[in-house]
Design a protein around this nucleic acid. Structure first.
Lengths: 241, 241
DNA sequence: CCAGATCAGTGTAAGACTCTCACAGTTTAC
DNA sequence: GTAAACTGTGAGAGTCTTACACTGATCTGG
């Protein structure tokens, strides 16, 4: 039972994520650090998915007993928060503003999708509330700047952030499980009669047109086409301030 | 090991979700149905979150042994797919088109957010790929119609759907854990110095202005403000066909 | 038409996991 | 030297899943 929580009002893990280090205390010095533990967890998740980042596995990787981890982290939930922030990591250096807000938003969204697709276990992490950890906030800050550069006013900034990041997340979710051609065909054949019967004319048209679900090939096309309404949305609230 | 899978190419649970019933077979008739099991799971999740919908709990609720469930469902994953579709349920009847596409999109988005906030365990379900279950597709069909009514062309329909539903999902995620005033204040006080030090001027301004994170009071304002760029985005790709 | 082989539904039991807590031993700082 | 903290051992209450025996209903062969 970890008792070093200096600010119990904060969501779990928040203080630790910002590098809060309690003042030196009495007993023997810790043989490891929270950063080491989180790094091990990231490695395990990268290797074999989120379920692989279990406390026993992490402990084995670090070289301690499962229980020793509870000296560094008060619960699995807290470690999950740290894992999420570490999994996102800092935004790529190339995301600095180019002066063209459309390019900024486009590159930001692409970077998010790429990160989520290269670390699909980030999609499995339970997320609630607003991001309050350093890396995730760094990503948000960049998006905020891009929107502000476009001329979006204060009252529409949160909305634009929610729209753009929501689109990025939804795109990653859709592309995260690349369907094999056989699967796609099976789904199509299975769905078509049901859709007709249910009167889902729009869906039926998309399925018949092969646009739904998107196959792995047209990742880029899907992304680019989806980005257009997003950019139009930002521009829409930016113009009429 | 359930062997009744008629179309193994389909994602797990898909066939069952559409009510696939294998032809009558030899042994004793099942004492229960998949629908009963899923209903019990929904009830448990509604009562105490997704973790409460465990196989032992579901089995207890239904009145059988844990293992008997494996005669109806081949794995927990498959049951999770069914649980997701049942949790969404059919879209409310009031979502039929009003003739005004803006109203349609607005009401659709609001309905999604409301459903997600009244069943926050839907946010905990692992989601990948495109929805292929009946209720979720019914929701999508309605959104597609609203976008088509706005004049969005075929090539932009998937993008608009992704944008709008992504926004709805992201909004629900942000509002799902209502922060107490004390928590909000604690986060604010804790974050402010870090943001200044990191040069996150935009975030610092939002935090200082009290707009970030949103408190429980301004759910509606947050939602309404966020919806504006979304509607502008749909309008943006609808006009220039 | 009836007997019996065949398979499905169920219960009991057990395996390999998970996260968490309690206790004793050891090490460090006050 | 005392008090506190790190670590290991042990254990408990869960999770999902598989294997095996038993009962019961259907289909097949005579």
């Amino acid at each position: 039972m970890l008792d070093r929580d200096t600010t119990p009002e904060l969501p779990p893990g928040t203080a630790l994520a910002w590098g809060a280090t309690p003042p030196p205390r009495r007993g023997p010095k810790p043989a490891h650090t929270v950063a080491q533990i989180v790094a091990a967890a990231v490695e395990l998740a990268d290797a074999d998915g989120l379920a692989n980042a279990s406390l026993p596995n992490i402990a084995h990787e670090v070289g301690v007993t499962t229980n020793a981890l509870y000296r560094y982290v008060s619960s699995k939930e807290e470690l999950t928060v740290l894992l999420a922030d570490a999994g996102w990591g800092p935004p790529p250096a190339g995301l600095a503003s180019s002066g063209d807000w459309r390019s900024d938003v486009r590159r930001w969204t692409r970077a998010v999708v790429e990160r989520l697709l290269s670390r699909t276990w980030l999609l499995d992490l339970p997320m609630r509330g607003d991001p309050v950890t350093p890396h995730r906030l760094a990503w948000t800050e960049l998006l905020l700047r891009a929107c502000a550069l476009a001329g979006v006013g204060e009252e529409h900034l949160p909305g634009c952030v929610t729209m753009v990041s929501g689109f990025a997340h939804a795109t990653a979710v859709r592309l995260a499980t690349p369907a094999t051609p056989a699967e796609t065909a099976a789904v199509r054949d299975h769905l078509a009669p049901h859709l007709d019967r249910a009167g889902s004319v729009r869906l039926a048209a998309l399925v018949a047109g092969g646009r739904y679900p998107a196959t792995a090939e047209d990742h880029d096309a899907f992304f680019a086409a989806g980005l257009e309404p997003v950019l139009a949305g930002v521009a829409g609230v930016a113009g009429r301030e």
